[in-house]
Computed example of a mutant assay.
Amino acid sequence: MNKTALVTGASSGIGEATARKLQELGFIVYGAARRLDRLEKLAADGIRPLAMDVTDDDSMRTGVEQIIAETGRVDVLVNNAGYGSYGAIEDVPLAEARQQFEVNVFGAARLAQLVLPHMREQGSGTIVNVTSMGGKLYTPFGGWYHGTKFALEAISDCLRLEAKPFGVDVVVIEPGGIQTEWGGIAAEKLKESSGRGAYARQARAVAGGMAANADSGRNSSPPSVIADAIGKAVTARRPKTRYAVGFGARPLIAVRRIVSDRVFDSLISRASGVPAK
């Protein structure tokens, strides 16, 4: 019997690589994204395209209902859809901050709510929440983004305890620097939000570093390393609760555990390119 997986944010980057990895492992894979045209390459290779907006409840319910109608089960949910909204806390409009939480947190939580009844009935399943090393540490101008990732880490921990008695595993994936569109998009958001005004000098410096890394591929790993970790997690008899993978993830998380807040403030400011006074 083929197991079924749903991967959100499947149109590129980590989501696309994960959809392909799970298909390689024998899963029937549904790749979800807002626009079906961006899923054409996956569809051509036998991955089932699914139009889904993780900020639209009807869209999510319809998608899960379609999977159940066509396969009768859902074994893996990979909550990967997300983006980075960067800017000074003072500058970012609360409407944008709420949208960041809608996509990165509430969309993932709602999909978990929708698949859990089916997983409980089966007595098995795995929910994979893709957070970030940014769910364990922080950077200047990333307050709203880091807030979503810290929140998803906490929700995942609570959900793991709640779902365990029903045979459902909850796994957190904490990517480090990855070669995706994320860095370029976050840099543009930062320039839009804080490229002028009181924070402009710092924001332009940080955005420049983010964009340069994104363009060059420096300080980053290919999306396949995350896909491989997810593949390992969903096929393990007893998966780890967390997988920190990709450029810088393990050492930076380890440093954050060891040093004081003030020392980490200094380290991360310099690494982010914040100019000295």
Rank of each mutant, 00 (worst) to 15 (best):
V7G: 03
G135Q: 08
E121I: 06
R20T: 09
A51S: 12
G87V: 04
I127D: 00
A19E: 07
A109I: 08
G125C: 08
T18M: 02
V103K: 05
A163Q: 08
I127R: 01
N104L: 00
G248F: 02
E121H: 14
V78M: 02
F101C: 05
Y86N: 12
P93E: 07
D91N: 09
P251E: 14
R160V: 05
N129V: 00
A43N: 09
N129G: 10
A229V: 10
V54Q: 09
K164S: 15
G87D: 02
A187I: 06
V78W: 03
L77T: 07
R110Y: 13
A69M: 09
D57P: 01
M52R: 07
D261I: 01
V103I: 12
Q113I: 08
K136Q: 15
Q202L: 02
S193W: 07
I127H: 01
P140L: 05
S193A: 14
V234I: 09
Q23V: 03
L42E: 11
L39Y: 01
V259K: 06
D169W: 12
G63Y: 10
I178W: 05
N104V: 02
V74S: 06
T71S: 15
V234M: 02
V128L: 10
V171A: 07
L152Y: 12
A187S: 11
L252K: 10
I253N: 02
M133S: 11
L22N: 05
M210T: 13
S260Q: 07
R160P: 09
Q113D: 14
A163I: 09
A211I: 11
L267C: 02
A33C: 11
N213K: 15
A276M: 07
A81S: 07
A254N: 13
R98E: 07
L77H: 01
A95L: 04
G197V: 04
A32W: 10
N219F: 13
F264I: 04
I67E: 03
Q122Y: 12
D215G: 13
V103Y: 05
A271F: 11
G107C: 05
I185Q: 10
L50T: 08
P117F: 04
G273E: 04
E102F: 01
T241L: 15
I253A: 11
A17I: 03
G15K: 03
L39A: 00
D169C: 11
V76H: 11
E192L: 13
D215V: 14
V172P: 00
C158N: 13
G26F: 13
E90T: 05
K164H: 15
L6K: 12
G197P: 02
V29K: 05
I230S: 04
L252W: 14
M60E: 08
V168I: 14
V206N: 06
L190S: 01
A236H: 06
S220Y: 08
V105G: 06
V259T: 04
E188N: 12
D45W: 01
C158R: 09
L116G: 06
K3G: 05
I127M: 03
S221M: 01
V274R: 08
D261V: 11
P93G: 03
Y30A: 10
S156H: 09
E153K: 14
E70P: 06
A200F: 08
